[in-house]
Design a protein around this nucleic acid. Structure first.
Length: 362
DNA sequence: CTCAGCCA
DNA sequence: TGGCTGAGG
């Protein structure tokens, strides 16, 4: 779940760090997207009727494919060059948190069964959403889909979030798109929220720049990381009674967790036993990520492969697949730089939208 | 979530 | 046009 209350804390204490932008501002930019988080959202919401999701003829869930296909086509149409980053092994520090989540899913499953017996539709849906877990198959399906679409993917050795931040740090991507605030803690220079879910609702993209966050909070990056650990993160327990507000005050006052702990001794706040803040700090500062990833390429979609995978294997309507392929090709024709010299003629054929692209390129 | 179709 | 609704597999 990222960092507890960080988004609210920044809204209050670093209002200048978040800037509203339009999707068009990212035309031509390479954006890293946390794939696993997207898949989770799709399983929560796409094609859901009570506890049922979209499935193929074999009864296997296809909501993640539907979501990934639509959203990726949409990004390409907006001229964005997406790179999807997949989770690898979770860090040892996160095992406790994952165990907790697994228990919560068990509880949800019990609640769901009770709701199913009673036939209470509202709570069937609510509890069913709480049982959602992203499996290896979901991930593999989406990797295969993206490869067929010609969209690059990265398989992170550890947390996708951390890998995204590293790509941004190495200037291999312009920004990272996620809803998870710990992107900032991992040091992503530019971090976008709501890049994915605009379209119909007109909520703007919110861009955070880590340098502005630090400036507004008056903290160094090391202090910001300590603030996040104190506020509560996925990797260790938090101190009861200390949330974002107190954490910020304490870090501003004492400068680092070591000093904060010294001063907390004569207060009512008690630090959990074996509180591994040092390891967590290292995890944020030196996460398990790949470097030296070759430059990304977006290739033309494999239309036959997509037809096989989506239509034959997963019961998508062939018409839908054909349309998606056409959209991907059209987007690549519009935005690939090599074809810029042809835009004048294309512009007259395809109307004002292309004119706008042309003006911006010139 | 995203799309298509319908209607004010 | 823009908001609402139902469907997608």
């Amino acid at each position: 779940m990222g960092i507890k209350g960080l988004s609210k804390l920044l809204a209050e204490h670093a209002p200048r760090a978040a800037v509203k932008r339009r999707v068009e501002d990212y035309r031509g930019r390479i954006i890293a997207v946390d794939a696993s988080l997207s898949i989770y959202q799709f399983l929560i919401v796409v094609g859901r009727k009570g506890s049922e999701l979209l499935t193929n003829e074999a009864g296997e869930v296809t909501s993640h494919l539907q979501g990934m296909l639509n959203r990726t086509v949409r990004m390409l149409e907006a001229g964005i060059k997406p790179v999807f980053v997949f989770d690898g092994e979770p860090p040892e520090m996160k095992k406790k948190e994952l165990a907790k989540r697994s228990l919560r899913r068990d509880d949800a499953t019990k609640d769901l069964n009770r709701a199913l017996e009673i036939g209470d539709e509202e709570s069937i849906e609510k509890h069913s959403k709480r049982t959602v877990k992203v499996t290896k198959k979901h991930n593999d399906d989406c990797k295969r889909l993206l490869r067929l679409m010609g969209v690059p993917i990265v398989e992170a050795p550890g947390e996708a979030e951390a890998q995204c931040a590293a790509l941004c740090e190495n200037h291999q991507v312009y920004a990272i798109a996620s809803e998870d605030m710990d992107s900032l803690t991992f040091g992503a220079r530019r971090f976008l929220r709501h890049l994915t879910d605009l379209g119909y609702k007109k909520s703007p993209v919110i861009e955070f720049e880590v340098s502005k966050v630090l400036e507004d909070l008056g903290l160094t990056m090391d202090q910001f990381i300590d603030l996040c650990i104190l506020s509560g993160c996925d990797y260790c327990e938090n101190i009861k009674g200390i949330g974002g507000q107190r954490a910020l005050k304490l870090i501003r006052q004492h400068g680092c967790i070591e000093e904060v702990l010294q001063n907390l001794k004569q207060t009512r706040f008690s630090v959990p036993e074996d509180w591994p803040y040092l390891e967590v700090r290292t995890l944020f500062k030196e996460p398990n990520v790949c470097t030296g990833i070759p430059d990304f390429v977006w290739t033309s979609p494999d239309s036959e492969g997509l037809m096989d995978f989506l239509s034959t294997e997963n019961s998508f309507s062939p018409d839908r697949v054909t349309k998606a392929v056409e959209k991907i090709k059209a987007a690549s024709d519009r935005y690939s730089p090599g074809r810029l010299n042809r835009l004048t003629s294309v512009a007259s054929l395809q109307g004002p939208h292309i004119d706008k692209v042309l003006q911006e390129k010139i």
